[in-house]
């Protein structure tokens, strides 16, 4: 009867799942027809590498949005973690240790967001708007506004290297995608995130440690942002104190394009990956077609509006 709509994922209805994928496919077909370079292997890996930073931010953002929150500070966390890591590598710390410490600082910054939101009960929008400024400020203070060079070959491989022809950032993105996908679907923590976003009160009364789950979500979001920052630093061989500003909006756009509800409780990480791909393909395609960056902004905004509109009409 209505069985055919019942795709195996319970959090997103069939149409909501198909929508983003169909959109992506449509764009790929169109661009393949218009531009011959589009479907070349080099270009495809290029796209993947370009989206990996945004995808990592968007993965963390998905967790937070699923709980019904938002994190505006990811761009600033990205910069602070990138700068600190570059600085530690510069001081002669082994790159792996510097990276680990960099991720820890990101997690710490995320957990500070989480503490204010879960225990202080301040609206996520406000808390992270404040820390957006705070973390960015700390980055500027620490660097005195100057970029930090970081060309240790053991470090830059993280952003510039290849493994079996695949760019290392893409590998990071895919590995974390599968991990997160598993985490959300198959662990109590994942379930609790959905439950918390769907109905916090019911989750609390069912014995879910809602405070802890919420703080964990922001902590992970911070860790993902810092990893994105470290990879970006490695790719550019330098850490810019202003890097990542405005990235939170692309990350949120990817999550929303993927069909995750801003109200929380509904969504999926695959959608976020597709959302990030849509944005990446759009950017890349417009570049190939020699559309000016000014127009690119306009087109991107229009696509997001259109996607959200389609999503709404499907739901009603």
């Amino acid at each position: 009867m209505r069985r055919e709509l019942n795709v195996r994922n319970m959090h997103v209805s069939g149409l909501q799942k198909l929508g983003p994928m169909a959109g992506l496919l449509l764009m790929v077909i169109l661009l393949a027809i218009i531009s011959q370079d589009f479907l070349s292997i080099t270009n495809i890996f290029n796209i993947f590498r370009q989206i990996s930073i945004n995808a990592l931010l968007a993965f963390g953002m998905t967790l937070v949005i699923l709980t019904g929150g938002i994190d505006l500070s990811v761009g600033s966390i990205l910069a602070l973690a990138g700068v600190l890591t570059a600085s530690m590598v510069g001081m002669g710390l082994p790159p792996w240790l510097a990276i680990l410490l960099g991720i820890c600082t990101g997690a710490l910054m995320g957990s500070i967001n989480g503490l204010f939101i879960a225990i202080g009960r301040v609206a996520p929008f406000i808390v992270t708007l404040a820390t957006l400024s705070l973390y960015r400020g700390l980055t500027l203070v620490y660097t005195d506004g100057r970029p930090l060079l970081s060309d240790n070959p053991d470090f830059v491989i993280l952003g510039q290297g290849y493994l079996f022809e695949v760019p290392v950032p893409v590998i990071w993105m895919l590995v974390l995608f599968f991990l997160l996908s598993f985490l959300l679907k198959n662990t109590p923590f994942g379930r609790h995130i959905y439950a918390l976003g769907g109905n916090e009160e019911a989750a609390l009364l069912s014995g879910v440690r809602t405070t802890r789950v919420k703080i964990m979500a922001y902590t992970l979001c911070g860790a993902f942002a810092s990893l994105a920052g470290i990879i970006l630093t490695a790719r550019l061989s330098s850490a810019q104190p202003t890097m990542g500003s405005g990235y939170e909006l692309s990350a949120i756009a990817a999550v929303v394009l993927g069909g995750t509800s801003l109200a929380g409780g509904k969504g999926w990480i695959t959608g976020t990956l597709i959302g990030a791909m849509i944005i990446g393909v759009l950017d890349n395609g417009l570049n190939l077609l020699n559309v000016s960056t000014f127009y690119q902004q306009v087109v991107k905004g229009a696509v997001i509006l259109l996607a959200v509109l389609v999503d709404r009409s499907e739901k009603s």
């Binding site: 319970m10 959090h11 379930r191 439950a195 109905n199 019911a202 989750a203 879910v208 409780g265």
Partner: peptide, 24 residues
């Protein structure tokens, strides 16, 4: 609706919310 169920989640997920340890 306000405090008992997570309406966005499935029947199955609601049923397993309390005692998830039992099958984890």
């Amino acid at each position: 609706k306000g405090k008992g169920l997570v309406l966005t989640q499935s029947v199955k997920e609601n049923l397993s919310l309390v005692a998830m340890n039992a099958f984890t």
